[in-house]
Design a protein around this nucleic acid. Structure first.
Lengths: 195, 195
DNA sequence: TTTTCATATGAACATGTGTTCAGTTATGTT
DNA sequence: AACATAACTGAACACATGTTCATATGAAAA
């Protein structure tokens, strides 16, 4: 038996990435085999190689695509002062953590499993994203709205804090996403505001 | 050829754990083989099983021991008000991140590679540690020193922020550990203090 | 010196790995 | 109806995996 039904090129491709994202987020890149991914798609392992050069490329593609989509989804808010922009960033980041939790999780857990070339590629995107927040903080300091001893450290600290949400937030939990957003915004606000 | 030199039981054991910690922190549990660990120790793979029942137990032991040592190293500061205790906690956590970065990294990156039983065991320690911070924040609120909308979320947010240090701090970097401590303490302070 | 035994070897086992590819099948086109 | 080809199978490849065990070794005890 070969192809079991229909012309599936356009559907199998995305399904491979979706299955890979799910499994890798759950078990880790090294712990997931090509045969597991194939089984999740409902196909034999060999068929994956019609869509992917190799396993490493699959991981890299997953991460690059995620970073591209993340940056694309962030539409620079016009006409907001630094405080408003910071609020936008915080809520955007938390929303992304929720909507695309697998990809977000992979993007910062599997960096060490990338080849140096792929790592450099992804890292470049990561820095672009970080630069958005850093810019907001810098502007806020310039406009004497924020009081921040070290903008670079505060940038990383805030992102680390926001990423943390992904490790414990569950839809079934006691807190709504709205509450989580509000509480993190409160902390971020107090961490930067000039009093 | 068998044993190549001397009676090494008391030295090989710790060396296995040290090598495993180094390698797992760098490449991840699933990506590191028993033969790699053995090679790092300077021994054949079979010899590891004089000290370890299996690979999974090695990971679990690493994590449990780390958590035990972490909790043991934390000697409850007497006679400090909540603010002083919070400062102590922040600096303690950052110092631990530096002194035992491999173990800290493993302890929150490899949770998903534990069997359910081992996970439950480690998770219990993790909650004990988290409870220390939560207690400090609760006390601060009670004494009307802190203003915290949700103590549980703030606890997690602060720990996530502090853990973040481990992902980018390097001794060779531009900032001293002292500076990093001070900057994070500043953020934590502002996040909780009642104004 | 001889005995004892903890400590390590190295080969083997069964299974799993990523990847390739000749062959098969269903689909859309002619 | 016949064809062309995209899409997939299934078996195979070479090698890696965790783990076991009979065997060898050397240091300490007698």
């Amino acid at each position: 038996m070969a192809r079991t039904a229909g012309s599936h090129s356009d559907i199998t491709g995305p399904r491979i990435e979706a299955a890979a994202a799910r499994l890798i987020a759950q078990h880790g890149y090294a712990a997931v085999s090509m045969r597991q991914i194939a089984a999740e798609v409902g196909v034999q392992a060999g068929a994956l190689y019609n869509y992917i050069p190799d396993k490493q490329s699959l991981l890299a593609r997953l991460m690059v695509r995620h970073m591209e989509e993340l940056l694309a989804a962030y539409d620079e808010p016009d006409g907001l002062n630094p405080l408003g922009q910071l609020e936008y960033f915080v809520k955007f980041h938390i929303d992304q953590n929720r909507e695309r939790s697998d990809q977000v999780f992979i993007a910062y857990m599997e960096l060490r499993n990338l080849t140096p070339e792929n790592f450099a590629h992804v890292e470049q995107f990561r820095r672009q994203y970080e630069a958005k927040l850093e810019r907001i903080l810098t502007d806020g300091v310039t406009e004497q709205m924020f009081n921040i001893p070290d903008v670079k450290i505060t940038t990383r600290a805030l992102i680390a804090m926001l990423n943390g949400v992904n490790t414990w937030f569950q839809d079934a939990g006691p807190l709504s996403l709205h509450q989580v957003r509000a509480l993190h915004w409160d902390i971020a606000y107090r961490a930067v505001i000039k009093t």
